[in-house]
Design a protein around this nucleic acid. Structure first.
Lengths: 123, 123
DNA sequence: CCGGATCCTCGACGATACTG
DNA sequence: CAGTATCGTCGAGGATCCGG
């Protein structure tokens, strides 16, 4: 029932690792873009706007290594590289969407809690 | 359907923020412990083993500020402080459990993808 | 027992310049 | 176009000491 209660420590760390990956600065945004269809490197970079090439490359490498994203090179001049979500990558959407929905429905309550907490400290 | 597709940028950032919080080094482990019942500061620290007091305090403060955890002080010598999940904190379990389940069922596929990726680079 | 204050280390991330 | 390499910054997190 609970995320880790019945799991051994290794499995729990695994879950935490997954959360860290998705919770990092760019993964969610990249997966979001690719969720709408394959994109080339530059197109992806343009859509994300403020990301550096370094981080885009690194994040894509991680996603590729974990089998979430496929990388297809089309030999040409200039070269073309297309990134797309794999089946597993798409699958990942479902549980993330659940967490997203939870966050949206609780956003007001969280804000209220923060204001209450901060207000109390000012006194 | 998708986590952020239909959401404005602010909401998407909100979701990312939530993922970062849960994905940080200690939050999941702490929430996991408190999910089984309230605990005092030292007991929590003992259970987590390798955490520093600083990080335990900081993480608990964040959770308290967001309304996920309640902090109850019992005046005494020595002082007693008990931490417990709030209703909202318990609620958080559900979407996290979904992600945990996903991770467990795909763990083997991810491992295989990593080995394939790493193996190819060695050549 | 609880937790604040301080110092230090280290990895994430960004900016820039360079290559096939 | 799609990267790699290098450098610098900054904050997360650990260790330790101190106070209520």
């Amino acid at each position: 029932m609970k995320p880790c209660d019945t799991q051994d420590t290794g499995t729990c760390q695994r879950i935490s690792e997954m959360l860290s990956r998705i919770g990092d600065k760019w993964t969610l945004l990249i997966v979001r873009e690719l969720g709408q269809g394959p994109l080339r490197f530059s197109a992806l970079k343009r859509r994300l706007g403020s990301i550096s090439q370094k981080m885009l490359t690194a994040t894509l490498r991680n996603l590729e290594r974990d089998g979430m994203v496929s990388r297809t090179v089309t030999p040409a001049t200039p070269p073309q590289v297309e990134y797309a979500l794999t089946a597993m990558g798409h699958d990942l959407f479902r549980p993330i969407a659940a967490l997203a929905e939870w966050t949206i429905t609780h956003a007001d309550a969280i804000d209220a809690a923060r204001q209450a907490y901060d207000g109390q400290r000012a006194a």
